[in-house]
Computed example of a mutant assay.
Amino acid sequence: MRLMWDMSLLKLDHLAVSCEALDAGATAIEQRLGISLEVQGEHPDMGTHNRLASTGDIYLEVLAINPDAKGPNRPRWFNIDNFSGTPRLTNWILQTDDIEGVLANLPGGFGEPLALQRGDLKWRMAVPKTGILPWDGLGPAIIQWDAGQHPSAILPDCGLRLSRLTIHHPQAVEMAELLGPFMPRDTAQFMPDEDAKLVAIYDGPNGEIRLE
């Protein structure tokens, strides 16, 4: 039997852009958004690396396989093993203070929490064994920060603010019905669409910028 949860149990933590090569991908996103991605980090457990930028309370991550790292003995997160093409927005990540409780109230497929660390940052993220999240990978990843510090608080602010996140998917109604009770109402919009994708609209000094 599933429990009843407060609708603000989950909140948007960050958005992830996948790319084939980090340097080229980060440059493409910097040019597209008119920002600088200031920090580079590595994820030894997943064999990936990233660059980040703060957009206020949340942040933007550009992620790629690290060619210099030893590959993990499991599929990497965000299905990045199978990524190809130009850099694009592939994932949205929701933050909780009770990752076990959230996963107990979601159907299977969201994964089991993995304990991860980079420097002073410690977190747990639910990663499916296949590396592929529900709804063809467009389901949210679930994260819990354990050290009391969030990357957005220590990153330079790039000046953009997320004004709207839209999840396009043929099963968008099902997604909204399942995830809606866990989130504040304005977290994301769910749009039935045969073309499955994520679309983020940012407000910046020069107006709206679309990222997908």
Rank of each mutant, 00 (worst) to 15 (best):
L165I: 07
A200T: 09
Q149W: 13
P170K: 01
E42V: 11
A115Q: 08
L3V: 05
Q31M: 09
A64D: 09
L37C: 05
E212L: 05
H14D: 08
T90A: 13
G159H: 13
M1D: 14
M4E: 01
S152P: 14
V62I: 13
M125I: 15
E100M: 13
A104Y: 02
G207E: 14
D136H: 15
C158D: 09
G159E: 13
P192L: 12
I99F: 00
G159R: 07
K197Y: 11
M4C: 00
A16D: 02
T86C: 10
F110G: 06
A196L: 04
G101A: 12
E212V: 01
L160D: 11
E30Q: 15
L37F: 10
L178M: 10
A176R: 11
E100I: 12
T130K: 02
D98A: 04
G148C: 11
A126Q: 04
A188I: 00
G139N: 02
G119T: 12
D136V: 06
L37T: 05
K129L: 13
A53F: 11
L63Y: 05
D203P: 03
A16T: 13
M46D: 08
G108Q: 15
L22D: 06
F190G: 01
G25F: 10
T187P: 12
E212F: 01
D97L: 04
W135L: 07
D193V: 06
L178R: 00
S152K: 10
G148T: 14
E177M: 13
P75W: 01
E194T: 15
D146P: 03
N50Q: 05
H43W: 04
A147D: 15
V17G: 11
C19N: 06
I209Y: 00
A176H: 14
L138Q: 01
T166L: 03
F190N: 00
L116A: 06
L22S: 06
R164D: 12
G85I: 02
N82Q: 05
K122L: 15
E194I: 08
M4L: 02
R2D: 02
A104M: 03
I29G: 12
P75D: 09
V173F: 02
G101K: 12
D68H: 03
T27C: 08
I142G: 00
G85Q: 08
I65V: 15
S163C: 09
G204W: 09
Q31C: 11
A104Q: 09
L211D: 00
A196T: 02
E177K: 12
Q189A: 14
E42I: 10
L179C: 08
D195R: 08
L10T: 00
T86E: 11
V199A: 03
W123S: 03
Q31A: 14
P113I: 12
G131H: 13
L63P: 04
A196C: 03
K122F: 09
I132P: 01
P134A: 03
L33S: 07
